[in-house]
Design a protein around this nucleic acid. Structure first.
Length: 485
RNA sequence: GGCCCCAUGGUCAAGUGGUUAAGACACCGCCCUUUCAAGGCGGUAACAGGGGUUCGAAUCCCCUUGGGGUCACCA
C-alpha cells in the first residue's frame, strides 16, 4: 500500500519550530517511501484560527523547501482540506455514532464539569467525565432541550478495555480505558473537537502513518476508540519527542525566536534550519551531519528517531548556518545579503558601490557571517566613515604614526584597480616605507576604520578605491590636529 | 494529583550483552595569519542513583530520583 502521511497545523499562530520539524519528518518519510504528503488545516478553533496564519504557515513551508502533493493550494481527491469546510462530514459521522448508541447528547454546564474535575483531582483520581448524561431517557433529554440547553455530543468511552498503541518510535504503550471519561466529539455549536475531526479526516484521506509530536500520545487511545466505533482501520502511529528550550522546558515565546519566520528574518538559511531540525531527534547512520534534503530523504527512517526530548541548541544552528553560508557562491550570497543591507540602512550606499565593488565587499565580509543579518555589522567599516574612540586615539597618537600615514596616503591614493592591486600594494607597503609590517597595518587600519579589528585591509581599500581611502586618511589627520589644538 | 513518555559529556547524539563508550556543536590550547574571523591540529568532559538477571551490563528487569507531556465545548 502506498504511504500517505499528513501535516495538519492549526492556523492559530505562525509555524513553530516544533511544527516545522513535524512537517519535515512527515516530508522525509513520505519522500523516502515515494508516498504522498497531505497538508490540511485544522481550524476548528474558531476563536483563535485566522486565515493570515494559514498563509503564513504555508509560506514557511515553501521557504523551508517542504513541498506537498495533496491538500491546501494544490487540491486533491479528498478536498476540501480545511476542516471548517468539512463540517457536514463530521456531523454525518457523529450521527452514525448517535444512532449506534456510541455517543449521546450531554447537557452538563461548564460549572458542573469544572466542579466534577476539581473533585476528582482532590480525591487523587484522574479527572474525567463521570457520565452524568450518559444514560438519560428520551424524556429527560427532551425536557432539557425544552429548557433551552444546547447539548454537546459525547463519545461513550469503553471503560474495561486496554488500549495499546504500537508506536513506531516509542514501542508498545498501553492505556487503561477507565482513565478516559466520555469525551466531547461535537461542541454545542456543531463544530467537531480535535480528537474527532482528526480521526474522520485521517480515515477519509486514507492516511497510513500518523507522525506527530509526543504531546498527542495520550490522545491516541481516544482516537483509537473512535476508529473502532466507526469500524475503520487504524493508521500506524509515530510520536516524535518534543523540542525543549535551554531550560529543558517546552519551547515557548520566552525562549526567544520560536517561529520559522523569525529565523528567516534573522538571516538563517532554510537549508541550514532544515538540516539542524532533522538532527534534532534523528540521526543518520553515517558520520556526516551536513546533508541536503535529498540526502536526508534517502537516509531517513523512523527507527532512527530518538525517544528522548531534544534541547534546541542555538550554537549548533549558528555553526550550521555558517557552514551553509560558506558554501554559497559570492554572487548568490550577494543577492541574499542585499535585503539585509537595506534593513541595516545601507541600501543607498550599496547601490552607489556598483557591482564590482559590491562583490569585493561581499568577499570581504563573508567569512564573518553567522547569519545574514550580521552583514550590517561587518559592512559598516566598508560603508561608514571612521569614528575614533579613545583606543583609536591611543594608537594614532603614537610616535611617528602621523608621518607614516602621510606616506601611506601617497601610495594608496594612487590606487586605481581592484582587489589584486590593493592586495599587492598593501603587501609592498612596509617595504616601501621601511617600517615593520605590524607597525604599518595596525595604525593604518585604525586610521581608516577607527577600529583595531575588522575585515581584511585589502578588501576595504579595494572597495573604497584610491580616492575614498585618501579621504579616510584625511579624516584621521583632521582628528589628530583637532586633538592637538 | 491520576495516567503516559523520557534519562550516555554543557548541548545534539552513535551504541542495541563483551568497544580504549564514536562523531558534531560549545569550551580550552597550539598552528596559520598584517587585526578579528575562517581554516588546520590537539585537549578537557558522559552511561542519574540503587537493586537484581548474567561468566559479563550504557545496553534486559524492578525501585528511587529527576525532567517532560496530558487530563478543555484548544489543537
Amino acid at each position: 500500500m502506498r504511504v500517505r502521511v499528513r501535516f495538519a497545523p492549526s492556523p492559530t499562530g505562525p509555524l513553530h519550530i516544533g511544527g516545522a520539524r513535524s512537517a519535515l519528518f512527515n516530508y522525509l518519510f513520505a519522500r523516502h517511501h515515494q508516498g504522498v504528503l497531505v497538508v490540511r488545516v485544522e481550524d476548528t478553533d474558531l476563536e483563535r484560527s485566522r486565515s493570515e496564519y494559514e498563509d503564513e504557515i504555508l509560506a514557511s513551508l515553501d521557504w523551508l523547501g517542504l513541498t506537498w502533493d495533496e491538500g491546501l493550494r494544490v487540491g486533491g481527491p479528498h478536498a476540501p482540506y480545511r476542516q471548517t469546510e468539512r463540517l457536514d462530514t463530521y456531523r454525518q459521522c457523529a450521527e452514525v455514532l448517535l444512532e449506534r448508541g456510541l455517543a449521546y447528547p450531554c447537557f452538563c454546564s461548564e460549572e458542573e464539569l469544572e466542579a466534577e474535575r476539581a473533585g476528582l483531582i482532590a480525591k487523587g483520581e484522574t479527572p474525567r467525565y463521570l457520565g452524568t448524561c450518559r444514560n438519560l431517557s428520551e424524556e429527560e433529554r427532551a425536557a432539557r432541550r425544552q429548557a433551552g440547553i444546547v447539548p454537546t455530543i459525547r463519545f461513550r468511552a469503553p471503560q474495561d478495555r486496554l488500549y495499546v498503541v504500537e508506536d513506531l518510535v516509542r514501542g508498545r504503550v498501553a492505556f487503561e480505558g477507565n482513565t478516559i471519561g466520555d469525551f466531547i466529539i461535537m461542541k454545542s455549536d456543531g463544530i467537531p473537537t480535535y480528537n474527532f475531526a482528526v480521526v474522520v479526516d485521517d480515515h477519509l484521506m486514507e492516511i497510513t502513518h500518523v507522525i506527530r509530536a509526543e504531546e498527542h500520545l495520550t490522545n491516541t487511545p481516544r482516537q483509537m476508540m473512535i476508529y473502532e466505533a466507526m469500524g475503520w482501520e487504524m493508521p500506524k502511529f509515530a510520536h516524535v519527542s518534543l523540542i525543549l528550550g535551554e531550560d529543558r522546558q517546552k519551547m515557548s515565546k520566552r525562549h526567544g525566536a520560536t517561529s520559522v519566520i523569525q529565523y528567516r528574518q534573522r538571516g538563517y538559511l532554510p537549508e541550514a534550519l532544515v538540516n539542524f531540525l532533522a538532527l534534532l531527534g534523528w540521526a543518520p547512520e553515517g558520520q556526516e551531519e551536513l546533508m541536503t534534503l535529498d540526502e536526508m530523504v534517502r537516509a531517513f527512517s523512523l527507527e532512527r528517531v530518538a525517544r528522548n526530548p531534544a534541547v534546541f541548541d542555538l550554537d549548533k544552528l549558528n555553526w550550521m548556518n555558517q557552514q551553509y553560508l560558506k558554501r554559497k557562491s559570492t554572487s548568490e550570497l550577494g543577492m541574499l545579503l542585499r535585503p539585509f543591507l537595506e534593513e541595516a540602512g545601507y541600501g543607498a550606499q550599496v547601490a552607489a558601490l556598483g557591482e564590482a565593488r559590491y562583490r569585493i565587499l561581499v568577499e570581504g565580509v563573508r567569512d564573518y557571517l553567522v547569519c545574514l543579518s550580521d552583514v550590517g555589522e561587518y559592512a559598516r567599516p566598508f560603508l561608514d566613515p571612521p569614528r575614533y574612540d579613545s583606543e583609536a586615539e591611543a594608537v594614532l597618537a603614537q610616535e611617528g604614526v602621523a608621518e607614516m600615514l602621510a606616506r601611506c596616503r601617497v601610495c594608496l591614493g594612487a590606487l586605481e584597480g581592484g582587489l589584486d592591486e590593493a592586495q599587492s600594494l598593501l603587501k609592498e607597503l612596509p617595504g616601501m616605507l621601511g617600517v615593520p609590517a605590524r607597525q604599518v597595518y595596525r595604525p593604518l587600519r585604525v586610521a581608516l576604520t577607527g577600529k583595531t579589528t575588522g575585515p581584511e585591509l585589502p578588501f576595504l581599500v579595494a572597495v573604497w578605491g584610491g580616492q575614498g581611502t585618501e579621504e579616510r586618511l584625511q579624516r584621521a589627520f583632521a582628528f589628530l590636529s583637532a586633538r592637538k589644538a
